[in-house]
Write a protein that binds this DNA or RNA. Structure first.
Length: 555
RNA sequence: GCCCCCGUAGCUCAGUGGAUAGAGCAAUAGAUUCCUAAUCUAUGUGCCGCAAGUUCGAUUCUUGCCGGGGGCACCA
């Protein structure tokens, strides 16, 4: 609808120039939008105002000429008015809206999809939590946002790859191994001193027990160093299995789990360091190796190999991001918690230093999550081991509510997650409000089938022409906006736009439902209305799918 | 001290330069012999943190300040 109007305006503007009514054919960029007030029509443009300069004319005069050149013979335009400082308001004829419905039926699950991405390869890397402890709600937010962004990009014609980077190399994994090893010794009745910087949580006990069940006393037959190393690998594997299962329960699956240890073993870390050394981008100071990130906009240079010979996390990350680009992705998106923001300049620097386009690298920073219960903060101490895990939150609140709550806020603003509110089945918790639309429509269709003997709902011109109530046209107009909502949501990587769209559509539907009956005495009218509500249901389902939320037939 | 994010109705939050700034919750009053009341209808609420600047027009962009959160390791 907007595209047609845009073309009409552009054509009319060129006609006006050909008629020598406009002074220039260099037109400024203009927007077409839905006015907030109904009195301002269905669509409006600021064309006249933004072109006051290019035409050296008053906006209202430009508007007058433009409307004249558009003429009144186009079937879509009922009338066009000039308003305010120079807005042109268009009123669209009722009949012009009906094709929206058949378009939805035709495209069905693909209604809202587009080819905006033109098949570009995009990688979304998200969660990537260290396998040293359970996931918490903060990880959950990143997981849900990353997954939904991936779904949106996929719907918009990008070739999307979901990846989880496992930090299974380095000191924290050794600490994990040591923690498990010590708990194993405790199981054998030894009293051990458990260091404060080891992982305190109960899950360490669980892993130690599992190891003992599987291997018996075997680990005591090998050297302590070997035993700790074995514990590290065993524990990391166990943790990844747990993490994967929690993410699966949120409906999240990855195309690839990328191991840092495998990256190190492949020699890619070493070779990338050598490469940068050769170009004098890495230098030695105080027995350590430093990367020159400062010339590329970082605050200061960063260490890649410590004076004890161990490479840092950053060294692996340089190689990892090089590897991503080498794999041919046009864009790589990292979803990180806001506490990692200081890390962005150095990764960006490493990409720029390698001669690659740093614009290919995008970071989504999700702000922190405050976990509350009835407004009171729930403690989140990580070392103490006493904190509410993501798994517990999902079990208590449910997958759909968890996902929807994370997606009804811009990822950029801090989020209060109240467990009690999240469990309520009222409009405090809009996920049910939206799902209820889907269930209600299913229920009506079921009744139509069972009691009215309606077996199929298809396009019928006379039936659709009976859709004339204001609430019905409001619904159709809303449905027409869905594709552009999805596009914008993907373009800005902001899934919350889809969530808000769905809440508004749901409100329009519930209002309609309460005012008008679908299954009326008049079978033709009923057929038209069934066609309309089935279209609503398809859009609700499509939107919820992008958010990873289920669309139930009954509630 | 430096860097990032936030500041919009009593609360939780939308609003990528446009017209009279919105929604839910909370409050009050109503609606169901009828397709699911997890619903709907009606009623009020605002120095859009403050101050300059940019322009036809700023909640939106720029700068400074105030307030809240986070980050500034040879940790990950």
């Amino acid at each position: 609808m907007k595209n047609i109007l845009r073309q009409l305006i552009t054509d009319a503007a060129n006609t006006a120039f050909d008629n020598k009514e406009f002074n220039s054919n260099e037109f400024a960029e203009f927007v077409i939008e839905e006015p907030k007030a109904d009195a301002h029509g269905d669509l409006s443009t600021n064309f006249a105002m933004v072109n006051a300069k290019t035409q050296k004319m008053a906006p209202r005069q430009i508007a007058e000429i433009l409307i004249r050149c558009i003429g009144n013979d186009h079937p879509m335009i009922e009338k066009a008015e000039i308003a305010g400082p120079g807005f042109i308001n268009f009123f669209i004829s009722t009949a012009a809206w009906y094709p929206v419905l058949s378009d939805i039926f035709e495209k069905d699950t693909r209604y809202g999809f587009s080819d905006m991405g033109k098949g570009q390869k995009v990688q979304v890397e998200f969660v990537s939590a260290n396998p040293t402890g359970p996931l918490h709600v903060g990880h959950g937010r990143g997981a849900v946002v990353g997954d939904s962004v991936a779904a949106l990009l996929s719907a918009c014609g990008y070739d999307v790859h979901r990846e989880y980077y496992i930090n299974d190399a380095g000191k924290q994994i050794q600490t994990l191994g040591l923690s498990v090893f010590l708990r194993c010794q405790e199981l054998d009745g030894k009293t051990v001193e458990f260091p404060e910087d080891c992982y305190q949580g109960d899950y360490i006990h669980d892993i130690a027990k599992a190891l003992k069940d599987e291997k018996g006393d075997w680990i005591h037959t090998i050297s302590e160093n070997d035993a700790i190393a074995f514990c590290s690998g065993f524990a990391a594997d166990r943790m990844i299995i747990r993490i994967r299962s929690v993410l699966n329960s949120l409906g999240i699956e990855f195309d690839n789990w990328y191991s840092e240890q495998a990256l190190v073993d492949s020699g890619k870390v070493e070779s990338v360091i050598q490469k940068f050394k050769d170009r004098d981008l890495i230098y030695e100071k105080d027995d350590a190796l430093w990367f020159r990130t400062e010339p590329f906009g970082d605050e200061k240079d960063r260490v890649v190999v410590r004076n004890n010979g161990q490479s840092t996390y950053f060294a692996s990350d340089i190689a990892y991001h090089q590897d991503k680009l080498d794999r041919g992705f046009d864009r790589i998106i990292d979803v990180w918690g806001a506490d990692h923001h200081g890390y962005i300049p150095r990764i960006r620097a490493s990409i720029a230093a390698s001669g690659k386009d740093e614009k290919q690298f995008v970071v989504i920073l999700t702000q922190l999550v405050n976990l509350l219960r009835k407004g009171i903060p729930v403690s989140m101490g990580k070392r103490s081991g006493h904190f509410v895990t993501l798994k517990e939150v999902i079990e208590e609140v449910g997958r759909d509510a968890v996902r929807f709550i994370f997606l009804t806020r811009h990822y950029d603003s801090p989020l209060d997650f109240d467990l009690e509110v999240a469990k309520q089945k009222t409009n405090d918790n809009p996920v049910y409000y939206v799902q209820y639309v889907h269930a209600r429509i299913s229920s009506i269709i079921k009744k139509a089938r069972e009691e009215n003997g309606i077996t199929e709902i298809t396009f019928n011109e006379t039936a659709v022409a009976k859709i004339t109530e204001p609430e019905e046209l409001r619904l159709i107009k809303h449905l027409a906006r869905y594709p552009e909502t999805v596009c914008a949501s993907a373009e800005f990587m902001e899934p919350h736009r889809v969530a808000f769209y769905l809440m508004e559509l749901a409100a329009d539907f519930h209002a309609y439902y309460n005012k008008h009956r679908v299954l009326t005495e008049d079978p033709v009218l009923a057929a038209g209305r069934l066609y309309l509500i089935l279209a609503v249901q398809k859009v609700i389902r499509n939107g919820l799918t992008l958010l990873g939320v289920s669309a139930p037939d009954a509630m």
